[in-house]
């Protein structure tokens, strides 16, 4: 990546968007990049729509505001497509990644995304249930992000997950998370 990449995350509070924003940022940092990760503070009620942000850059990041014009938008819950304009401010030729069973065309229609927006879909919730055992779509969707955008390296992501989860979670949970990354990486549709 030659320049600053800005990612906006949409989720409902409690779905792990903040963790995902950090997961991706810290993976990039492990690979020598500069990063920022922050939620849009205030919405701390379970289920309320919230946004989180990740910035990644090879150079120090000076700007400290909300991301209004993201390169990438990630949606962790497709019920948000009806209530939030997830494509708002998305840059030309931007990427939209959605955790959903819908097809890319269905997402494009639901979001009224511009023709130049690259749409990727992955059933990260289903993957999470089958690998981790719970509907925590944030780890697998980071794998999908790695595949679709290349903004982070999938092997670095897995290394980071393994290192940061060790000591906090059981080997089974760690293995499940790693498997979820692999599966989302393989199964994401563009």
């Amino acid at each position: 990546m030659a320049e600053l990449t800005e990612i906006r995350w949409h989720a409902r509070a409690g779905q792990g968007a903040v963790t995902a924003s950090r997961l991706v940022a810290e993976t990039a940092m492990d690979d020598g990049q500069y990063m920022q990760a922050m939620p849009e503070y205030g919405a701390e009620r379970q289920g309320a729509p919230l946004k989180a942000y990740t910035r990644i850059s090879p150079d120090p990041i000076e700007i400290h505001n909300n991301i209004l014009h993201p390169d990438i938008v990630v949606v962790l819950d497709d019920t948000l497509l009806e209530v939030v304009n997830v494509c708002e401010g998305l840059k030309p030729n931007g990427t939209l990644i959605v955790n959903t069973r819908m097809t890319g065309d269905e997402v494009r229609e639901a979001t009224r995304a511009a023709a130049d927006v690259k749409i990727a879909t992955v059933d990260a919730s289903d993957i999470a249930i089958n690998t981790i055992g719970r509907d925590i779509p944030n780890t697998p969707i980071a794998g999908a992000l790695a595949k679709v955008t290349g903004v982070i390296d999938v092997e670095s992501l897995k290394k980071y997950v393994e290192r940061s989860f060790t000591g906090k979670f059981s080997d089974k949970v760690i293995a499940g998370n790693l498997a979820s990354v692999d599966r989302a990486y393989e199964e994401v549709h563009v």
């Binding site: 940092m29 920022q36 922050m38 505001n65």
Partner: peptide
């Protein structure tokens, strides 16, 4: 340090 912007955001 500026509240939330600097106090809470994660940086390298």
């Amino acid at each position: 340090l500026d509240g939330f912007i600097t106090s809470h955001a994660l940086e390298r």
